[in-house]
Design a protein around this nucleic acid. Structure first.
Lengths: 142, 142
DNA sequence: GTAATGTCTCTAGTAACTAGAGGTTCAAGA
DNA sequence: TCTTGAACCTCTAGTTACTAGAGACATTAC
C-alpha cells in the first residue's frame, strides 16, 4: 500500500492530477487510512500507468474512460478499442498535416526578413496582415 | 462602417470572439452607435484580419499582442517580429516531431489487433497498459 | 514530544473561446 | 408611423485537463 505521493513518484503523475483523475472517475475511489489519506495497491498503480500512457499518446479523458470501460467487457473490447485507437490516429495525422503547412509558411515568413534590414516595412508583419501573400490556404481547426 | 455581424462575416471570426479580442486588448475599443452597438471601419477590419491570420498560424494571444505593439514601433519591429516568428516555428517543429512519434506507436498498436480476433487479450489495451511494449520513449509536453 | 513533511478539501486560475439568459436596438415592410 | 424580427448588448458560466494556493489535519523521523 502506498500513499498518493508514492504513487505520484512511481508514475510521474502529479499528486493533484491523481486526485483529479479520481474525481473524473478514471481511477476508482481509493481506500483511506483512519486519518482520511488515500492508500493505493498494485492495481491502482497499474491503472494509473495505463491512464498516463494513454494521455501521453494524446487520448482524451473521455476516450480513456471508454477504454477503461471496455476492459470490463472482454467480449467487445478488441474491436471497439481498435476503433478508438484508429480515430486517435486519424486525429494525429490531421494535426501533423496542418502543422507542416504552418511550418512551411512560418519558414517563408521568417526568411523574408533578415532581422536587421528595412525597418519600416517588416515582412513578418506584412505577411501576417495579408493572407493573400500565403502560398496556400491554411485554416483553423484539426 | 459595419456592424459586428458584418465584420464577423467578412473575417470569418465569430461575433463573441470579436468581443473577446476587444476585451483582451487585441482590438481597440470600437466606436458605438447612440444605441451602444459597435461600429467598425476599414482599419478595424484589417486589424482583425491580421489577428485571425496569426491565430491560424498558431500564435498565442500574447504573441499577437506583442506583434501588434511592434507595429507601433517600426524602429525595432523587424528583429523582434522575426524572433517571435522563429520561436513559433521552433514550437511547431517540436510538435510535429512529437506527433510523428505518436503516429508511429498508434500504427503499431492498432496493427497488433485485427478487430475481430482474440477477445480476452486485446492488444490495444495491453499496449496502453504496458509502456514497456513501446518501441521508444515518448513523453508528455511540447 | 515536536518538527517537518505530506496530505486533506476547497476555491480559483489557466487559454481561448463558446453558450445561454434576459434585455435593447436596428432596419425593413405595412 | 408602427411593428416585427433579426441582430445586438452585457453578464455569467461552461469547456479541457489540469495547476496553484489557502488553511487545516495526519504521518513520520528523530
Amino acid at each position: 500500500m502506498f500513499s498518493i505521493g508514492e504513487l505520484s513518484k512511481r508514475t510521474k503523475v502529479k499528486v493533484p492530477t491523481i486526485r483529479y483523475y479520481e474525481e473524473m472517475g478514471l481511477l476508482a475511489e481509493a481506500e483511506r487510512t483512519v486519518g482520511n489519506q488515500r492508500r493505493y495497491d498494485k492495481a491502482g498503480l497499474e491503472r494509473l500507468g495505463f491512464i498516463r500512457h494513454a494521455r501521453d499518446l494524446g487520448f482524451s479523458i473521455e476516450a480513456i474512460s471508454s477504454l477503461i470501460e471496455l476492459q470490463g467487457h472482454p467480449d467487445r473490447s478488441c474491436e471497439a478499442a481498435t476503433n478508438i485507437t484508429t480515430s486517435q490516429l486519424v486525429d494525429v495525422r490531421a494535426k501533423i498535416k496542418r502543422l507542416k503547412a504552418l511550418e512551411k509558411e512560418l519558414v517563408r515568413i521568417s526568411k523574408g526578413c533578415d532581422g536587421h534590414g528595412v525597418s519600416e516595412d517588416c515582412y513578418v508583419l506584412a505577411s501576417l496582415a495579408d493572407h493573400g501573400l500565403c502560398d496556400r490556404e491554411h485554416t483553423r481547426g484539426a
